[in-house]
Design a protein around this nucleic acid. Structure first.
Length: 602
DNA sequence: TCAGAGTGCGCC
DNA sequence: AAACGGCGCACGCTGA
């Protein structure tokens, strides 16, 4: 049963509304001695490149909240505000990436250590589906109700109502009450380091990525889409030879029957069965084995592949180019995935096809270039570290091709023998499927399907089972690592697991084993990427360079910089990616590949 | 009519 | 018993 919570309204609450530049300096003076400041803005909208901040509310302990009207006080008059925002006090806010961008819009820069109550709540709750809005966090932690009715009111109005101003002041004030409460919980749960050293320092980078965005070469993109359209037309022509099964039976005039909609699994399945194909599903897994024998199946798979690229990117990507900046400004979610990974949408830059032709459309301004760094096989290296498997560690230690090593181990051949093996490439592909699947506890049935669809390797169930057996015999450390997680977490019914840095993922119900195997790996991967980005951003800032991080894709950092900075950026990028990873993966070596180019394809 | 679960597939 | 994890998006389909 949900009881109605009391309205949030601290007894000592007061505020001062400042709309004259002459009052600003004296109003802010008492706040300079405070070591923590609650920060909030009220804006005319959510787009930092179109909309404007109207109010800036700054709360300090035992002081009235200062509410500054940014329509009335502007430009150089805001100098005293910048002094405060740039000082060494802890800046506390909810979703600070947004405040940072809005303030930047009017030339104010928020500096100093940050404490984000949204992210702190995420760190504490990762894995649980809990709302993390300010009101939700206040309700859960302070057991009070935050009045949000003014949130969508018109903050662009010439004069603001008393209620609007008070509402803004309360939002800044509540940050001061939330922060110690959240910090205590994080400390008690052993999550303070993750919040302080990883999540909070990452906020300005995320703000920067949203603010800067990425440039799309529209002509390049159109050419790509034209080529895709041709491929797609070809595939559709083949598919159009299919007729809707229901009409096929009913109609005496086949010419008038409808062709099947290739996007409808139901219609497709019926049509394929009607022409005599032995299928029970139209999933990739079911269709791939038939592709060689039936052109129609090949056409369906081709169609789906081209549709994917064309569908998302032809229509949506172009419409998402910002009218003011001419660039794509995705939303980045710093704690988007339960594992701690960053996610991205509108547009989903992290799912842009990997081929050169697609990524080459992501470019930069004349005189600038793109430098990108990739971790080589970071997930498998993390497994080598966590499982302490001797084989795996040794292979990485000697810089061997890990997929080939696995191929050698399961076939009981030496690598030298394998190099001259007639099916060398196929065996390596199979080993790749094993490496990526089995570390997270994949079943024989799934392995069979996975090897087929992803790597084009056909296996019988018996073969799949025997490969799994050989895999774990070859890597007994991985088996022990699984066993240990099963024993110490799964069997005890624990509902959380952590990464090496202490990041935690929780479950409401009992987690599945596979999730328990995966989370420490994917989570540590996220930790490493964030640490690397933080290090790089600070190296760039220290040198007052113009370079900026514009995209993070799980094991990849993309930077944009003037050409003159390229060499230095590539050096820093490599150094900053290796530095945090090395101690976390020790003794497993880290490998980073850096490229300089004029597009994301580099 | 519309929200939402389901399918399928792009990325890591 | 059931079994690789993490996402976002477009689509057809379903049920209220």
């Amino acid at each position: 049963m949900s009881r109605v919570l009391p309205l949030y309204r601290p007894s000592d609450f007061s505020y001062r509304y400042i709309d004259r530049a002459t009052d600003l300096e004296s109003a802010l003076a008492p706040l300079h001695s405070s070591d923590r400041l609650g920060i909030d803005t009220e804006t005319t909208g959510l787009d930092p490149h179109c909309d404007r901040p109207r109010l800036l509310q700054i709360a300090a302990p035992d002081q009235p909240v200062i509410v500054i009207d940014l329509f009335k006080i502007t430009g150089g008059q805001l100098q005293p505000v910048q002094q405060l925002l740039g000082n060494r006090a802890l800046k506390i806010g909810h979703l600070l990436k947004f405040e940072i961008q809005m303030l930047r819009r009017i030339g104010l820069y928020l500096r100093g250590p940050l404490f984000d109550t949204h992210l702190a709540f995420k760190v504490w709750n990762a894995g649980l589906k809990r709302k993390a809005s300010l009101a939700a966090v206040v309700a859960r932690l302070l057991k009070q109700r935050l009045d949000k009715r003014m949130q969508r009111s018109n903050f662009g109005a010439t004069s603001l109502s008393r209620t609007q101003i008070e509402y803004g002041a309360l939002d800044a004030r509540v940050e001061l009450d939330l922060q110690p409460c959240l910090e205590q919980r994080l400390r008690q749960a052993g999550l303070w380091q993750v919040a302080r050293d990883i999540e909070f320092p990452c906020i300005p980078i995320v703000a920067q990525m949203e603010w800067t965005g990425m440039k799309l070469d529209l002509q390049c993109w159109d050419r790509l889409n034209a080529a895709l359209a041709v491929q797609q037309a070809g595939a559709i022509a083949v598919i159009n030879t299919l007729r809707r099964a229901d009409k096929l039976q009913l109609s005496l005039v086949p010419e008038l029957t409808d062709t099947v909609n290739p996007n409808s699994p139901t219609q497709l399945l019926a049509a394929l069965r009607a022409v005599g194909l032995p299928v029970t599903s139209t999933s990739q897994k079911a269709l791939v084995p038939l592709a060689d024998d039936y052109p129609i199946v090949r056409a369906i798979l081709d169609y789906r592949r081209t549709l994917k690229t064309a569908g998302i990117f032809n229509t949506t990507l172009q419409t998402q180019i910002h009218p003011t900046t001419g660039r794509l400004h995705p939303n980045w979610y710093q704690y988007g995935a339960r594992s701690g990974r960053i996610t991205c949408k509108h547009p989903p830059l992290q799912t842009i096809p990997r081929d050169r032709s697609a990524r080459a459309c992501f470019v930069t301004e004349p005189g600038w270039c793109i430098v990108k760094g990739d971790y080589s096989q970071i997930e498998l290296r993390i497994v080598a570290k966590l499982s302490r498997d001797r084989q795996l560690r040794q292979a990485y230690g000697q810089g061997q091709d890990i997929h080939l090593v696995t191929a050698a181990l399961i076939t009981q051949q030496s690598i030298a023998q394998l190099l001259t093996h007639p099916q060398r490439d196929q065996l390596r592909q199979l080993a790749k499927a094993l490496n990526f699947g089995l570390i997270y506890g994949m079943s024989a049935a799934k392995l069979q399907a996975y090897a087929e669809t992803k790597y084009g390797v056909s296996l019988t169930m018996t073969e799949a089972r025997s490969f799994i057996r050989s895999f774990f015999q070859a890597y007994p450390g991985i088996r022990r690592w699984h066993e240990q997680i099963r024993r110490t977490v799964y069997a005890r019914g624990l509902k959380e697991i952590r990464t090496l840095t202490g990041r935690r993922r929780r479950w409401r119900d009992r987690p599945r084993l596979n999730e328990l195997f995966n989370t420490p790996v994917q989570g540590l991967n996220a930790d490493i990427l964030k640490l690397a980005a933080i290090r790089l951003a600070s190296a760039i800032a220290r040198r007052r360079m113009q370079a900026r991080i514009i995209c993070l894709v799980h094991d990849e950092i993309v930077v944009e910089c003037p050409k003159a900075e390229a060499q230095l950026v590539s050096k820093l990028l490599r150094r900053c990616m290796i530095a945090p990873a090395r101690p976390l993966l020790h003794p497993v070596p880290v490998q980073v590949e850096v490229k300089i180019g004029t597009s994301w394809a580099a």
